[in-house]
Amino acid sequence: MTEYKLVVVGAGGVGKSALTIQLIQNHFVDEYDPTIEDSYRKQVVIDGETCLLDILDTAGQEEYSAMRDQYMRTGEGFLCVFAINNTKSFEDIHHYREQIKRVKDSEDVPMVLVGNKCDLPSRTVDTKQAQDLARSYGIPFIETSAKTRQGVDDAFYTLVREIRKHKEKMSKDGKKKKKKSKTKCVIM
């Protein structure tokens, strides 16, 4: 069974824990209790493949930012979460993405942009803004509501699919490099 290491990042209060708990335990946590770091595991079937999701729910508070490099190193894919009623959390996505790329030393890291709290009427981040940002990053965008469960499975499952595509691409690139290195030079 394939294991996928997913990391949920975003500013404090955007609903990272609520999304994760909704996926794992099928219930909505409405009281806000700032996370330092929590880890969850769940076995699911995605596109006919049974897999184990190892999900790291991270601290959004700035005082825990020193811990970010460590979990970013171990993560295979990242859910970059903002709240649709919090423009600052949307603007912060850029910083999370840049930090992930720096730590992973790669421009090509599996990510999904997630606009959470889409059940709320007080939207300050337009869907088109988020779609445009995701398009500019070359990553999928999904709106979710941890409260109603809308888009929750889709967000995590899409990230797994992005990781699969990335692994497939990397193995193809690896095979191309191996083929090239088999060419021999004969000096007579």
Rank of each mutant, 00 (worst) to 15 (best):
residue 84 I to P: 15
residue 82 F to C: 14
residue 119 D to V: 02
residue 116 N to T: 15
residue 78 F to P: 00
residue 67 M to Q: 05
residue 88 K to D: 11
residue 64 Y to P: 02
residue 81 V to M: 11
residue 125 V to H: 11
residue 87 T to S: 10
residue 67 M to I: 10
residue 122 S to L: 08
residue 98 E to F: 00
residue 103 V to P: 02
residue 125 V to Q: 13
residue 119 D to F: 01
residue 104 K to T: 15
residue 111 M to K: 02
residue 70 Q to A: 13
residue 110 P to T: 03
residue 75 G to W: 07
residue 125 V to G: 13
residue 118 C to A: 10
residue 126 D to R: 06
residue 100 I to A: 03
residue 97 R to C: 15
residue 80 C to W: 03
residue 86 N to Y: 02
residue 109 V to F: 11
residue 107 E to D: 12
residue 108 D to C: 08
residue 79 L to I: 14
residue 70 Q to T: 12
residue 67 M to T: 06
residue 83 A to Q: 14
residue 70 Q to S: 13
residue 84 I to Y: 15
residue 106 S to M: 13
residue 107 E to Y: 09
residue 110 P to N: 02
residue 121 P to G: 14
residue 97 R to E: 10
residue 124 T to L: 10
residue 109 V to N: 01
residue 69 D to W: 02
residue 81 V to Q: 04
residue 125 V to N: 12
residue 123 R to F: 09
residue 124 T to W: 09
residue 70 Q to E: 10
residue 118 C to T: 11
residue 68 R to L: 02
residue 75 G to S: 06
residue 124 T to N: 12
residue 74 T to N: 14
residue 88 K to V: 07
residue 118 C to Q: 07
residue 76 E to M: 14
residue 112 V to N: 00
residue 88 K to Q: 13
residue 110 P to F: 02
residue 80 C to A: 05
residue 86 N to E: 12
residue 81 V to I: 06
residue 112 V to G: 01
residue 74 T to Y: 11
residue 69 D to H: 07
residue 107 E to F: 12
residue 72 M to N: 04
residue 103 V to S: 05
residue 71 Y to P: 14
residue 113 L to Y: 07
residue 80 C to K: 01
residue 71 Y to V: 10
residue 78 F to H: 02
residue 109 V to K: 02
residue 86 N to T: 06
residue 75 G to C: 07
residue 82 F to D: 02
residue 80 C to D: 01
residue 76 E to R: 05
residue 115 G to H: 06
residue 71 Y to Q: 07
residue 76 E to G: 05
residue 84 I to E: 15
residue 78 F to M: 02
residue 125 V to C: 12
residue 72 M to K: 13
residue 81 V to H: 02
residue 66 A to H: 12
residue 100 I to W: 08
residue 64 Y to G: 03
residue 99 Q to N: 04
residue 121 P to T: 13
residue 65 S to E: 11
residue 116 N to H: 14
residue 83 A to W: 01
residue 111 M to P: 00
residue 113 L to N: 01
residue 80 C to P: 00
residue 120 L to W: 10
residue 114 V to N: 01
residue 116 N to S: 13
residue 107 E to W: 10
residue 109 V to T: 05
residue 82 F to H: 09
residue 97 R to Q: 10
residue 97 R to Y: 15
residue 118 C to R: 06
residue 79 L to K: 00
residue 104 K to E: 06
residue 115 G to K: 03
residue 77 G to M: 13
residue 125 V to F: 10
residue 126 D to K: 07
residue 112 V to R: 00
residue 98 E to K: 04
residue 111 M to W: 06
residue 106 S to F: 10
residue 107 E to I: 10
residue 125 V to S: 12
residue 77 G to E: 03
residue 92 D to G: 05
residue 73 R to D: 09
residue 75 G to E: 04
residue 112 V to K: 00
residue 116 N to M: 15
residue 126 D to Q: 08
residue 82 F to A: 15
residue 75 G to P: 04
residue 113 L to S: 02
residue 70 Q to L: 05
residue 82 F to E: 01
residue 80 C to V: 13
residue 101 K to A: 11
residue 68 R to D: 03
residue 66 A to Q: 11
residue 114 V to W: 01
residue 65 S to G: 09
residue 112 V to L: 06
residue 68 R to Y: 02
residue 73 R to K: 09
residue 125 V to M: 12
residue 81 V to Y: 01
residue 109 V to D: 01
residue 78 F to R: 01
residue 121 P to Y: 09
residue 126 D to S: 10
residue 72 M to S: 06
residue 80 C to R: 01
residue 83 A to H: 07
residue 70 Q to P: 09
residue 109 V to I: 10
residue 104 K to L: 10
residue 100 I to E: 01
residue 86 N to P: 02
residue 100 I to V: 06
residue 121 P to V: 11
residue 118 C to K: 06
residue 123 R to D: 15
residue 124 T to A: 13
residue 79 L to T: 00
residue 95 H to C: 05
residue 86 N to H: 05
residue 120 L to Y: 06
residue 67 M to G: 09
residue 68 R to A: 05
residue 73 R to C: 10
residue 113 L to E: 00
residue 86 N to R: 05
residue 77 G to A: 14
residue 86 N to M: 03
residue 88 K to L: 09
residue 113 L to R: 01
residue 112 V to W: 02
residue 65 S to P: 05
residue 113 L to V: 06
residue 72 M to C: 05
residue 118 C to H: 07
residue 117 K to Q: 13
residue 106 S to P: 05
residue 70 Q to M: 07
residue 81 V to E: 04
residue 67 M to A: 04
residue 120 L to A: 14
residue 78 F to C: 02
residue 80 C to F: 14
residue 109 V to G: 02
residue 119 D to A: 04
residue 81 V to T: 08
residue 82 F to S: 14
residue 126 D to V: 07
residue 122 S to G: 14
residue 124 T to S: 12
residue 123 R to G: 14
residue 88 K to R: 09
residue 86 N to F: 01
residue 103 V to G: 06
residue 100 I to R: 01
residue 66 A to I: 08
residue 76 E to H: 13
residue 109 V to L: 06
residue 108 D to T: 08
residue 68 R to P: 03
residue 74 T to G: 12
residue 124 T to Y: 10
residue 63 E to A: 03
residue 83 A to Y: 00
residue 65 S to I: 06
residue 107 E to M: 14
residue 113 L to C: 07
residue 112 V to Y: 02
residue 122 S to T: 11
residue 74 T to H: 12
residue 105 D to F: 05
residue 70 Q to R: 15
residue 116 N to V: 15
residue 74 T to Q: 14
residue 108 D to V: 07
residue 79 L to E: 00
residue 104 K to G: 10
residue 66 A to V: 10
residue 86 N to C: 05
residue 109 V to C: 06
residue 123 R to P: 12
residue 119 D to E: 12
residue 126 D to P: 07
residue 76 E to N: 09
residue 83 A to C: 04
residue 67 M to V: 05
residue 106 S to V: 11
residue 78 F to E: 00
residue 82 F to Y: 10
residue 123 R to N: 13
residue 102 R to W: 04
residue 98 E to D: 08
residue 117 K to A: 15
residue 84 I to A: 15
residue 79 L to M: 08
residue 79 L to A: 04
residue 116 N to C: 15
residue 70 Q to Y: 07
residue 96 Y to W: 15
residue 76 E to Y: 12
residue 107 E to R: 07
residue 75 G to D: 02
residue 88 K to T: 13
residue 119 D to P: 01
residue 110 P to K: 01
residue 121 P to M: 08
residue 69 D to S: 09
residue 122 S to M: 10
residue 114 V to S: 01
residue 115 G to T: 08
residue 76 E to S: 10
residue 113 L to W: 10
residue 123 R to T: 13
residue 119 D to S: 05
residue 63 E to L: 02
residue 124 T to C: 11
residue 118 C to Y: 08
residue 117 K to S: 14
residue 83 A to N: 15
residue 69 D to T: 09
residue 72 M to L: 04
residue 97 R to V: 15
residue 81 V to L: 10
residue 117 K to Y: 15
residue 75 G to H: 06
residue 124 T to F: 09
residue 83 A to D: 15
residue 70 Q to G: 11
residue 88 K to G: 11
residue 82 F to P: 00
residue 115 G to C: 13
residue 69 D to V: 01
residue 72 M to I: 05
residue 90 F to W: 14
residue 114 V to Y: 00
residue 101 K to R: 12
residue 98 E to S: 05
residue 115 G to I: 13
residue 118 C to F: 09
residue 117 K to E: 13
residue 67 M to E: 03
residue 110 P to R: 02
residue 67 M to L: 13
residue 111 M to I: 10
residue 105 D to V: 05
residue 101 K to T: 08
residue 79 L to Q: 02
residue 114 V to F: 01
residue 97 R to G: 06
residue 86 N to A: 07
residue 106 S to N: 09
residue 115 G to F: 14
residue 90 F to S: 04
residue 108 D to W: 05
residue 102 R to L: 11
residue 112 V to P: 00
residue 86 N to I: 03
residue 78 F to L: 03
residue 123 R to M: 13
residue 125 V to W: 12
residue 64 Y to W: 01
residue 72 M to T: 04
residue 105 D to P: 05
residue 111 M to E: 00
residue 119 D to G: 09
residue 73 R to Q: 11
residue 84 I to R: 13
residue 118 C to E: 10
residue 107 E to C: 10
residue 109 V to Y: 05
residue 124 T to P: 12
residue 81 V to P: 02
residue 77 G to Y: 10
residue 126 D to A: 09
residue 91 E to A: 07
residue 122 S to C: 11
residue 63 E to Y: 01
residue 125 V to Y: 10
residue 89 S to R: 02
residue 122 S to Q: 09
residue 124 T to I: 09
residue 116 N to R: 01
residue 73 R to E: 11
residue 97 R to D: 04
residue 120 L to Q: 13
residue 111 M to T: 03
residue 69 D to F: 02
